[in-house]
Design a protein around this nucleic acid. Sequence first.
RNA 1: GGAGGGAUGACUGAGUGGCCGAAAGUGCUCGCCUGCUAAGCGAGUAGGGGGUGUUUAUCCUCCUCGAGGGUUCAAAUCCCUCUCCCUCCGCCA
Length: 417
Amino acid sequence: MIDLKRLRTEAEYRSGIERKRVRSGLVEEVLAVDAEHRALLARVEELRGRQNAASKAIGKAAPDQRAAKIAEAGVLKDELMALEPSLSEVEARVRELALQVPNPADASVPDGGEGDGEVVRVIGGEPPAPALDHAAFAEAMGFVNTEKAVEMSGSRFAYLMREAVMVELALVAWVLGQVGAQGFVPVMPPVLVREHAMEEAGFFPTDRQQVYEVDEGALFIVGTSEVPLSALHRGEILDADALPLRYAGFSSSFRREAGTYGKDTRGIFRVHQFDKVEMFVFASPETSAEEHERILAIEEAIVSALGLPYRVVNIAAGDLGAASAKKFDIEVWLPSEGRYRELTSCSNYHEFSARRLGIRTRGEGGTQLVHTLNGTACAVGRMLVFLFEHYQDGGAFIVPDVLRSFTGFERVEPRNS
RNA sequence: GGAGGGAUGACUGAGUGGCCGAAAGUGCUCGCCUGCUAAGCGAGUAGGGGGUGUUUAUCCUCCUCGAGGGUUCAAAUCCCUCUCCCUCCGCCA
């Protein structure tokens, strides 16, 4: 949720929103309805004040004067009742519109849309394509079965099988250890949440079409453990000394991938269900930018330890999600496609989601909203895609060094060939 | 699945229609006192919106006692719905 007060008083705040490709006229509309709301609120409050005073007077009045005073207060009540429905109607409109307004882009975010991100750095080379691309290799090795999964569940589902399962689990265990060493508390959260959790995390209403709905709309399946992690301190006033609070959620993630027909149909690059270790941080506003860099550094350390060539991109304003004020993607070189593809991303939400969640700290001048940040420690399935290409040796698969103590094997030979 | 009890400020907990945004205690903050510590004494201590503005001051005002709705001139208190917690019974691991 944006700060309406800042929207109407700070030009920079407003331009940060407008840099994010918002529906034209939305900002003007919000401001107009907000003004209407405040004007009406003043009238209603004035009436309520008089009504409150009149009611109090009845309690103190002598018994023989009560009847007259009750009649008097009744008139005020009727006036109020005539006005209040329009107030709640305007309130609902402000809220509905404000929910559609994205978090303003940070000043350090470049202008433009998809493809206009700023490449911050490039690490590693651009090795040539292996004999088989990730999908063909995974199938040849018996690591992935999409055919039967598609019959059973539909496109973009897959069975992960054999040694690949052990590599998947090794990645999870290793990554949780890495982030644990950085102070992130491991969490396995519920993946079914109520609607308000989706809204407060910043996903509803804007990304509703990406989310699976179950139990007749009572519950929604999360597309990232960011949602249940964000709710971990819902409604709390946190001790400033306790910040930053860092969590690492491990869960399956589910995405409808609406509007991606025909994109990334090979293998398990883009699927409806995948496992992910996600970092989530509640930070003070003063340190959130620093914390963002820290999360990025951890992501880079993980990709580097796996020996993958990558680049860091500062995502352009028009390509940011609604809740994000700033986002870094790590894109890893995918040899078969001869280009960098997104593996992780980390965002600073500033106080956008904290406002909806009601998460604050106590400072000198009262309470202030915390900042929330999130970042992918490891999107496991997507990571496998890159490993399947970068760790081919002849027809065999080599287990990355750092995972070997978890898998118990170093190499998987080609099957029946 | 059935029956009953409950949800109040950072915490414990009183409060069945007006004198209640709310007793008391704990905690915390400040001051006093005590040679130190402990104890004692006094004061203060919820969140949010709007207006004003000398713009993290002051002041005015409205809302909030799990959430939403209703009754009433007036609701923490009465009624309805929902969410959650507890106890007992049943069922199942």
